[in-house]
């Protein structure tokens, strides 16, 4: 199933086009760059997962796509227009939840909803809906420091969803969750993705999670960071964890990442 890129590349014009992206944080440094010459096209409504060892540059790549960090060279284009900064429909869930500590869970979510232009009433309703989606309806009035790590991460996801972005960038969003909540959240994410149709770039350390969620898995290598291999998964969802085809892929991915 690991096909050469030329054949594998999606036929439709790319929603996100990453071409020749190289990143060095410190120009003077002798080490190989954090990212070297990364090319990746992501189609509209595609669910793409980046997987790779800690420190291989996943967060860096996501930050560059978000427009939060500038590439040393190369370009990222969304809908054909080069990315020059954050915003404009690119929602992001950060590896560290990045909730505003001075706002309650509800207010954090409303912050996202309002910044897409909803009036206070609509933002309130949206927050209600998202709080129940993440199973925290009873915790709306708590401040982030009164929530557990997993709850904080769920609120951060809700905040990003409240933006209703057409691109959702998620940096290990379920990393802090317990296994059970994690699986529930994966299902929820798929539901949201299918009902609201979004292009998702998802970072995870879990091979199983990547297999359960993705249309395409990008395995990254480190030093210099780049794409080692990609796998397309054409299986319908919901997928079963016990699917033998996934088990075979699991083996291959493991070989690549090891």
């Amino acid at each position: 199933m690991a096909l050469p890129r030329a054949i594998d590349a999606p036929a439709a014009p790319a929603k996100i086009a990453i071409s020749g992206v190289t990143k060095r944080y410190d120009a003077a440094e002798a080490r190989p760059p954090v990212l070297l010459d990364v090319d990746l096209d992501i189609a509209e409504n595609e669910f793409v997962t980046l997987i790779g060892r800690s420190g291989c540059g996943k967060t860096t790549l996501l930050n560059i796509v978000a427009g939060l960090v500038e590439a040393t060279s190369g370009t990222v284009a969304v809908d054909g227009a080069p990315v020059t900064g954050p915003g404009r429909g690119k929602g992001m869930v950060f590896q560290q939840h990045a909730l505003f500590p001075w706002l309650t869970a509800r207010r954090n979510i409303e912050f996202g909803a309002k910044s897409r232009g909803l009036d206070p009433q609509a933002a309130h309703a949206e927050a209600d809906q998202l709080l129940s989606l993440i199973g925290l309806s009873a915790y709306g009035d708590k401040y982030p420091n009164q929530l557990s790590g997993g709850m904080q991460q769920r609120v951060a996801i809700a905040r990003a969803l409240a933006l209703d972005p057409h691109i959702l960038l998620m940096d290990e969003p379920f990393g802090a969750l317990d296994e059970i909540t994690r699986i529930e959240m994966q299902d929820e994410l798929l539901r949201v993705w299918q009902s609201r149709r979004k292009t998702v770039v998802f970072v995870t350390h879990s091979i199983t999670e990547a297999l359960m969620l993705s249309d395409r898995i990008i395995a990254m290598r480190a030093n210099p960071g780049g794409i080692a291999a990609e796998y397309r998964i054409d299986l319908p969802r919901p997928r079963s964890r016990a699917d033998v085809r996934l088990a075979a892929l699991h083996e291959k991915l493991w070989e690549h990442l090891r």
Binding site: N63, A66, G67, L68, G85, P86, G87, R88, K90, G91, M92, F94, Q96, A98, L99, F100, P101, W102, F111, G112, S115, R116, R159, A160, L163, L169
Partner: peptide, 28 residues
């Protein structure tokens, strides 16, 4: 914390609004 500013920027908050709604509360 830079990550808070980044989070706000992904929500299209910039300029003076970023100062008023994120930087000032965080500096309180």
């Amino acid at each position: 914390d830079p990550v808070l500013i980044r989070a706000a920027q992904t929500m299209d908050i910039g300029g003076l609004r970023l100062l008023v709604r994120v930087v000032i509360p965080a500096a309180m």
